[in-house]
């Protein structure tokens, strides 16, 4: 019974490998990076544009959401009056529970037209980055909030005794003390951003290309699966499972990294 979770993980990996095995044997891994383009129906399987899409959207969102999320947590803990801090925390918790499809829908009807007015077509890398930022912000904020709570009170007493200002306390003592927890939050946020499908699918435009600037549409690995799975057969279907396997590997690495970082202090 307790091994159920482990069994499900194994089963998922098993099925992903099982479905990808035929294509890996007949075509090989190299062609997913060397082919001239992504035209799976005519046996061309270049995943690189989608990998770039995933990478750029994720990195952009994490770069924006990390400072905002950590700043939000610091704001709640050390700057805001208690009532405002509680309200703010409630709001962030609420946002953490909003489904991704609602974020995507809002992005599609509100954000994309606004970006489109600046530079058409609107559905772009930038829209994806902004929506993802909004989505992973609650994750980063809540984990950062928890790790700030666990900063030993003696540290704060020490700072107060030395007459340190608020920012000096936060910057010089609290942030270094909580750094591993903060980093865990960022890693969790990154994992969420990489795996996000619906929101990105709805606002990114889904053109298979390596974008040259933030206003160009992109397609991510996850969006690619969601778009093509419905009609994919044979090698095409297997190729989609390969992208699933790639995602799984990335997430696996992130989870191990988070595990090594905090040895489970945050969750358990």
């Amino acid at each position: 019974m307790a091994l159920l979770a482990a069994a499900i993980v194994l089963l998922i990996i098993l099925f992903l490998v099982w479905e990808t095995l035929p294509i890996l044997q007949s075509i090989g891994l190299a062609r997913f990076f060397n082919d001239s383009s992504w035209h799976p129906t005519s046996e061309e399987f270049n995943l690189l544009p989608m990998l770039w899409g995933t990478l750029l959207v994720t990195v952009g969102a994490v770069l924006i959401a990390t400072p905002l999320g950590i700043a939000s947590a610091i704001f709640c803990h050390y700057y805001a009056p208690r009532a405002i801090a509680n309200l703010y925390r409630r709001l962030v918790e609420l946002l953490a529970g909003i489904p991704s499809v609602v974020y995507g829908f809002w992005g599609l009807v509100v954000l994309v037209p606004i970006i489109g007015r600046i530079r058409p077509p609107g559905a772009s890398l930038l829209a994806g980055i902004l929506i993802l930022t909004l989505m992973i912000l609650p994750t980063i904020t809540l984990v950062a909030d928890a790790s700030l709570t666990s900063v030993p009170p003696e540290y704060l007493r020490g700072c107060a005794a030395m007459g340190l200002g608020r920012w000096a306390t936060v910057h010089g003592v609290v942030l270094p003390a909580a750094s591993s927890g903060l980093l865990t939050g960022v890693i969790l946020g990154t994992g969420r951003a990489i795996g996000e499908t619906m929101a990105v699918l709805m606002v990114c435009g889904n053109v298979v290309q390596t974008p040259k600037n933030v206003f160009e549409p992109v397609r991510t690995l996850t969006a690619n699966i969601a778009l093509e799975m419905a009609y994919a057969t044979g090698h095409h279907r297997a190729a989609l499972f390969v992208s699933g396997l790639v995602l799984m590997v990335i997430v696996f690495v992130l989870v191990i990294a988070a595990e090594l970082l905090n040895r489970g202090r945050i969750y358990v």
Partner: peptide, 14 residues
């Protein structure tokens, strides 16, 4: 931990 981190679309594939 891994299961909690697996992207939902991969669950869909599975």
């Amino acid at each position: 931990d891994v299961l909690a981190g697996v992207p939902s679309i991969v669950f869909g594939l599975f």
